Amino acid sequence: MIGLVGIVVTFAMVFGGYLLAGGKLGVIMHSLPYEMMMIGGAAVGAFLLSNEMSVIKQSLGGIGRSVKGPKWHEQDLQDVLCLLFQLLRIARANPVELEGHIEDPANSPIFQTYPKILADAQAVELIADTLRSASLNYDDPYQVEEMLSQRIGLMNEEAMHAPHALQNMADALPALGIVAAVLGVIKTMSAIDQPPEVLGKMIGGALVGTFLGVFLAYAIVAPFAQRLQAVMKQDQSFYDVIKSVLVAGLHQHATNLCVEVGRQSAPEHVRPSFGDLENALRDLKRAS
């Protein structure tokens, strides 16, 4: 929602200031479709040329994510800590029982308690693969931590493809605006025998290209790219929390301490409070 407010404020301040200063929208509106066709079309074409289909799809979906905000919130962090708490308790009390949960998470009553986490294949695979490795005696905490860091690093790198692609488009838009403006100047020079009032409108139309390229770059596309990058980083921190708990478990810390390590590794603005998490864990202990 705050993103939409930002867009409204940007347009209102830029064009409102222009109108209050005595500017006329007629020239801009007349040239806008043609300039947008040249600048926007060239930007989209270059975007398609320079990115793979997976990045293109991720970027299109990323625009919606940048508006909606992060996928994972404080309650989700608390849920995944509770999920890991239950799995670690089972792993230590009855490793055979754990196998049923990690081999078929979709039918696991523990995973089914947290449908949002279950729906995220990356989170489920990260948990199941690590616990499976531990059950196969691949339980060196330092090796597992390195493995998880590399895996999450690759996930982070892939998640950043879309923001980088949008930022590259933003960087190119001012230059494409200059291209459109130069074409407008060429058109104006071909009509140099026209009266000043006609030439003035043609020059004004040419300058719309420069304006549009800069405006789209720094007021629209670049903020979307930066917002998407921030959203992706917050969402990726969810997997860092999972890693922290699993590695602490391999160090044979107490289960409550493992969960607390994960809670402390969460970003502050989405970190569950100690009291809320403690109450949730107490309810799980009573239920079991």
Results as ranks from 00 to 15, higher is better:
K24V: 01
V27E: 04
A165V: 06
N279L: 15
F211W: 09
G16T: 07
G16W: 11
Y114F: 13
Q122P: 01
A123G: 12
R89D: 08
G209K: 03
L154T: 04
P196C: 08
G275D: 13
A93L: 10
V185F: 01
D140I: 15
P95F: 09
M13L: 15
A172D: 04
I2K: 14
V245I: 09
S265P: 06
L84D: 03
R282L: 10
V27Y: 03
P109E: 05
Y142S: 12
F15K: 08
Y34C: 01
D276A: 12
L176K: 04
Q236V: 09
L154A: 08
N156P: 00
D140V: 14
G69C: 05
C82G: 05
L19K: 13
P195N: 03
D240N: 12
L81G: 04
L136W: 05
L48A: 06
A106K: 13
L257V: 12
G40L: 09
Q78Y: 07
L20P: 02
E197K: 08
A181G: 10
L212A: 06
S66M: 13
Y239N: 08
A217V: 07
I63V: 14
G69L: 04
A162T: 03
A248T: 12
L49G: 10
V247T: 07
V185G: 02
G41T: 05
I7W: 05
S31I: 00
F274A: 12
A219W: 07
L49D: 03
E268Q: 15
Y138Q: 14
D235F: 04
H101N: 01
S288I: 09
P223A: 03
G16Q: 03
Q58N: 13
Y239P: 07
V124N: 11
L32G: 06
L20A: 10
I56T: 04
S288N: 14
Y239T: 06
K68M: 14
Q236D: 12
N156F: 00
V5F: 11
I2P: 03
N279C: 11
G69R: 09
K285H: 12
D171C: 00
A162H: 02
D276F: 06
L88D: 01
A21E: 14
S31M: 11
M53C: 02
M189V: 11
E125I: 02
N279Q: 15
I117S: 03
I102V: 15
E260K: 08
V245C: 06
M13F: 14
V9N: 00
